[in-house]
Amino acid sequence: MNLDELTQRLHRIRDNNDWKQFHSPKNLAMAASVEMAELVEIFQWKTEDQSRQLPADELAHAGQEVGDIVLYLLLLCSELGLDLDEVVRAKLTDSERRFSQ
C-alpha cells in the first residue's frame, strides 16, 4: 500500500468537491470516530464466534467501514503533517518494547 499515492488520490477527491474547508483536524477525527461507530455497530449483539464468522454481506460492510476509517486517518495525518507509516512504526516499536518479554 503506497500511502503517498492514496493521500494524493484523496486530495484530488477533496479538492474536486471543495471539501478542504471542512477537513480540519477536529472534523476529520470526529468523522473517523463516526465511521468506527458504524464498524462497531456491525458487531453489536453478536457472540464472539459470530463476530469471527460474519456473513459475506456483513464482512463486505465491515471492509467498507475499515476503509472509511483508514482514509479519514490518512487525511487527518496529512492535515497535521504526520507521516502515517512513521507514527504506526513508532507505536509498534514502543509496543514491542513495552509488551514483549
Rank of each mutant, 00 (worst) to 15 (best):
A56G: 02
A56L: 10
N16D: 13
N16R: 04
D18C: 07
L71P: 07
D4W: 03
I13Q: 10
E41H: 09
D18S: 12
E79H: 09
K20P: 05
L80W: 03
P25A: 05
H23A: 14
A56H: 05
D18P: 01
V88F: 14
L74F: 12
Q64V: 07
Q50M: 04
N2S: 15
S33T: 10
E79V: 12
R89L: 08
C77I: 00
L10N: 13
K46M: 14
S95G: 11
S33R: 04
M36Y: 11
V34I: 14
L75I: 04
R98F: 08
E58R: 05
P25S: 09
E86G: 06
Q64G: 14
L54S: 12
A32S: 14
A62W: 01
D15Y: 08
Q64T: 14
I69K: 01
R9T: 03
E35N: 01
R12F: 14
E58F: 03
A32R: 00
E41C: 02
V66N: 05
V34G: 02
T7G: 09
S33P: 03
V34P: 01
V70G: 10
H23F: 15
L74W: 01
A62I: 04
V40H: 00
S78E: 10
D18W: 11
E58S: 08
R52G: 11
G67S: 14
S33A: 08
A31I: 03
V70A: 12
L54R: 11
E38P: 09
A62Y: 05
Q101M: 11
N16V: 02
A90S: 08
Q50A: 06
W45L: 03
N17Y: 12
F22S: 07
V70I: 07
T7I: 13
I42K: 04
D83H: 06
L28Q: 00
S78Y: 01
L75E: 11
E96Q: 12
Q50L: 12
K20E: 14
L3V: 14
E58I: 00
H61W: 01
R14L: 07
D15H: 14
E38A: 05
V34W: 01
L10D: 11
W45C: 08
S51P: 02
H61F: 09
T93M: 03
L39E: 03
V66C: 10
I69W: 00
A56F: 08
A60V: 04
S78N: 11
V70T: 13
S51D: 01
A90G: 07
S24T: 15
P25N: 09
E35G: 00
K46E: 11
Q8G: 12
R12S: 14
D49K: 11
